[in-house]
Amino acid sequence: MTRFVSPRVIRALLPALSMAVLLVAIFVIQPRAMSYFGLNLMLNLALPIAFATMAQLCVITVNDLDLSIGSFVSFCACVGATFLNDTPLLGVAVLVGCVGVYAAVGALIHLRNLPSIVVTLGMSFVWLGCSVLLLPTPGGTAPAWLIAIVKFKTPLIPFAILASIALALIVHAGLMKSAAGAVLRGSGGNPQAIARAGWSLLRTKVTMFALAGCFGVLAGLSLVGMTTSADANIALRYTLLSIAGVILGGGEFVGGRVSPIGAVLGALTLALAGSLLSFMQISPDWQIGAQGAILIVVLALRTLVNRAEARAA
């Protein structure tokens, strides 16, 4: 369309570029990281973050924000380390019930026209309270089959990477490529238009929140499979990580503009950022601040690209 590479293409490539820069930096500082074992070590905690980011992406698609995802993932991890191991049937029922609660929260937000930030902030304390009731002290044991899945050694490429790629492609197909996905994203872009075309906004919102619940459950299970035991605070930081992952991956808070592939890349980038900072021998005290700085740099770059786009238009 244009003589130059269009800003939209640059924007779509930005998440991949920032991850590549991060990886190159890591490999330069620590060449031994460039191996199956090294990647596995750096990325084994990336999969739960990728699932949580995908959950957040579902909610952001319909112009809402989920501040409860971190404590929800913690709760699912606690369920995974207790009920799911001791009484598998009850465990599955609890997890299915959790997804139902997420769907109900979506319905409540739509029907009462409540701000999602308030509702999910309240829910975050509910999930946290349930986790503390379930596991007052860190402990529990993950089911053996779950550990086996998560720690499965795939040939050549670590499991976490393969699973992340699969996750990105599946959600991309469902949300970006399918006919139903167009309606779901449209309800974030212009809800009135979707309603005027005869679709139910309640249904789209409930669908997206239920999907968020499903991904939250997967995040909790993959996390507890990795750590083998759980505690009530295990994933609290996932709330902000997941939001950062979606935004880093090219998504926007409103308007239904999201990118599942970008979001997974964003989640991996955030996971790698911690490794890079360790390799740079930055003390853990400063790491959170440095992670924030990386986020700000990437977002500033995107704003520059957006400005270029606005000028081109």
């Binding site: 490529k177 006919a179 139903a180 167009a182 309606v183 994203r185 449209g186 974030g188 872009g189 212009n190 009135q192 238009a193 979707i194 005027r196 075309a197 005869g198 679709w199 308007g255 239904g256 503009r257």
Partner: peptide, 25 residues
């Protein structure tokens, strides 16, 4: 009444629920 985040074809689909399945786009 168009969704600005969707493509022209996707917006057409919003109004035509019967366009679905393989090759809908």
């Amino acid at each position: 009444s168009l969704c600005p985040n969707l493509s022209v074809a996707e917006n057409a689909r919003i109004l035509h629920p019967s366009i679905r399945g393989f090759g809908w786009r």
